[in-house]
């Protein structure tokens, strides 16, 4: 069986976005607040303070998301084949050893079909997505101890009446295997692995 390396798409994106946006807002807030404070211009202090607090909010989100990822570690998801045909089955193996004690609400492994559409509304560019959960497997939540290992194998199938991957300007149809772990009071741990589904039908039995 061919083992493909995986392409990680999301998960850390929230952290990077939080750091980037939070950093910009916090810096802008400080830059405008400190001179205003020195010259006792209270309106400037107020506006700069609001920017600073918004920035700190984003940075706080990034920090909690990063902390959640540190608590869980790096689960290894192996997909037997990431170049698939419509109707083809493939295997997904989840292997993870917890480095720290962690309480989890749930662990989900999903096969997702995602439509992404980007459009112009006035001067704004907007993007909407719609996820179809084709297969959903859930591991029970609970307390996982440091050193505890989970190993699960799943067989998934691109539906025979499904669609292949399409990526054209402002319109995308994509397939993903999604791993999600819910940690109480922290942002969910999410990793997505894109599958390339070719415009070919799988032969019977594949």
């Amino acid at each position: 069986m061919q083992v493909q390396s995986n392409v990680k798409l999301s998960g850390r994106q929230g952290i990077y976005l939080g750091l980037f946006v939070g950093g910009i807002f916090a810096c802008c807030g400080l830059v405008s607040m400190l001179p205003a404070l020195a010259s006792r211009q209270w309106v400037g202090v107020l506006v700069g303070g609001v920017f600073f607090l918004v920035g700190m909010g984003f940075l706080g989100y990034a920090a909690t998301a990063y902390y959640g990822r540190v608590r869980i570690g790096s689960p290894q998801l192996t997909i037997s084949n990431t170049n698939l045909r419509v109707g083809e089955t493939f295997n997904v193996n989840l292997l993870h050893t917890f480095q720290r004690d962690v309480q989890l609400e749930k662990i989900l492994i999903q096969l997702l079909f995602r439509e992404t559409a980007t459009y112009q509304q006035g001067t704004d560019t907007r993007t909407v997505t719609h996820n179809d959960i084709i297969e959903n497997y859930e591991l029970p939540g609970g307390q996982y101890q440091a050193g505890q290992m989970i190993q699960q194998a799943y067989t998934m199938q691109i539906p025979p009446d499904g669609m292949h991957t399409v990526k054209v300007r402002r319109n995308q149809l994509q397939w993903f295997v999604r791993l999600e772990a819910g940690i109480p009071k922290l942002p969910d741990y999410v990793e997505e692995y894109e599958l390339a589904v070719l415009p070919e039908m799988a032969e019977m039995g594949n």
């Binding site: 439509e115 992404t116 559409a117 292949h164 399409v166 149809l173 415009p199």
Partner: peptide
């Protein structure tokens, strides 16, 4: 390709 398709947004 592409095949005809009718989806939610695309």
């Amino acid at each position: 390709q592409p095949w005809s398709f009718e989806g939610h947004y695309v």
